[in-house]
């Protein structure tokens, strides 16, 4: 299993009234240095894929088809290589199997 982390953000030309409101709130809380706030979406996707390249291409298609609207939003993402996690899981499985055969 791999984890993809997708960020969907309003395009720079799109007004973001939510961001503007939060920026004002931060300013009024004393964070005088806050110049701009843009609000987007964060998605965490667990997916099965045979390779990193396949996972990346799948996530890219997901973004283009559904997750972002190209008229108003940009997207970027990264995919965890997840090899470490998979290796650890495989090792645990092997150990468990060994344990069972030992009992037998």
């Amino acid at each position: 299993m791999r984890t993809a982390r997708v960020l969907v953000t309003p395009k720079p030309v799109i007004n973001d009234p939510q961001g503007a409101t939060v920026k004002q709130a931060l300013n009024s809380l004393g964070f005088a240095g806050v110049h701009e706030v843009r609000i987007g979406k964060y998605l965490e996707i667990q997916l099965q894929a045979s390779s990193d390249a396949e996972a990346r291409s799948e996530v890219e298609q997901m973004c283009r088809k559904l997750l972002a609207n190209g008229v108003i939003e940009d997207f970027r993402f990264d995919v965890d290589p997840a090899e470490e996690a998979e290796k650890a899981a495989a090792a645990a499985d092997a150990k468990a199997a060994q344990g069972r055969s030992g009992e037998g």
Binding site: P10, I14, N15, P17, Q18, T21, N69, V71, I72
Partner: peptide
């Protein structure tokens, strides 16, 4: 596209 009303 239709986005959040400018006045929120």
């Amino acid at each position: 596209a239709l986005v959040r009303n400018a006045n929120l």
